[in-house]
Amino acid sequence: MTVETPATVPQSPRLTTRLRDARTSVALLLLAIAAITPVAAPALGQPFYVDVTARIMIWAIAATSLNLILGYGGMVSFGHAVYLGIAGYTVGILAFDNITNGFIQWPLALLICGLIALVFGAISLRTKGVYFIMITLAFAQMLFFLGISVEKYGSDDGLLIFTRSEFDFGFAELDLSDATTLYYVIWILLIGSVYLSHRIVNSRFGMVIQGAMANETRMQAIGVPTYRYRLTAFVISGMMCGVAGLLSANFERFISPDVMNWPRSGELIVMVVLGGMGTLFGPILGSVAFLLLSEILSTWTEHWHLIFGPFLVLVVLFARGGLSGILDRLTGRADR
């Protein structure tokens, strides 16, 4: 049973081949547009789009984090926005108590996100399918109601954040009160999140979580205890979503329980599915499409949901792989 080994062995896609596929090109183009928006939008008389783009990028980070477990791990977390709230409230509450040092705020926010994801994940990953969806939803709503009930921190009115996180490096200061600085911090962290996802999904660890999604039984049978890998992915994802949360709190100078209410979690899922689950740039495409469309449609008519809803249904029904899938088909890329 021997056959000659082929002389050339295809490697994973190189940058050159990756640039050729449409979805990557579009995503890189969008990132480039985002890079020049703070200059270009005011010059074009549309300064309003700077904030729109910043918000889209924050959501794109959150969607990228969800894609890590939903798209690559098959874990349909219906409570993912909770980490936006946890990180946001950590920043907000610390600021409220006059701790504005970002070197304390940000690591603490991510640590708390990680710990809560560990607890929520440890329990919910014991279940599957609809039960998993419901239990992640229930955990998130639990914290939503906690946020509503704590009057000291504004309950459902939310909490204003008077001072953004301060980073004093000694020799220099990162001044997030400067809108442009904050904008580019968001831009860099979005790229960082996508790059981190790229490394993770192609690593040994990534092979395991994707394998466990594709065929759990086979994974167990080749000796991999899948639970602990899923749980780790769940924690990483929660922390990455926390990055979006602390950025949002800084950007809006405001945090309210609403950011972790279930419709936000639902919107995150929609962004991931719309953009293309399990594709690196899908969440960017999805959040751009979702937020721009809802922005534009809502200026046309107050009944914009009536157009938006059917549009989403059509994409999900007819474009397997979401917008990424459509782009691939337009350019004739057959695989995936």
Binding site: R199, N202, S203, R204, F205, M207, V224, Y229
Partner: peptide, 15 residues
């Protein structure tokens, strides 16, 4: 990979 031990390697490309 499974036989090689644990798979908690999150950075280097497995392929």
């Amino acid at each position: 990979q499974s036989a090689a031990g644990h798979s908690f390697r999150l950075w280097r490309p497995a392929r």
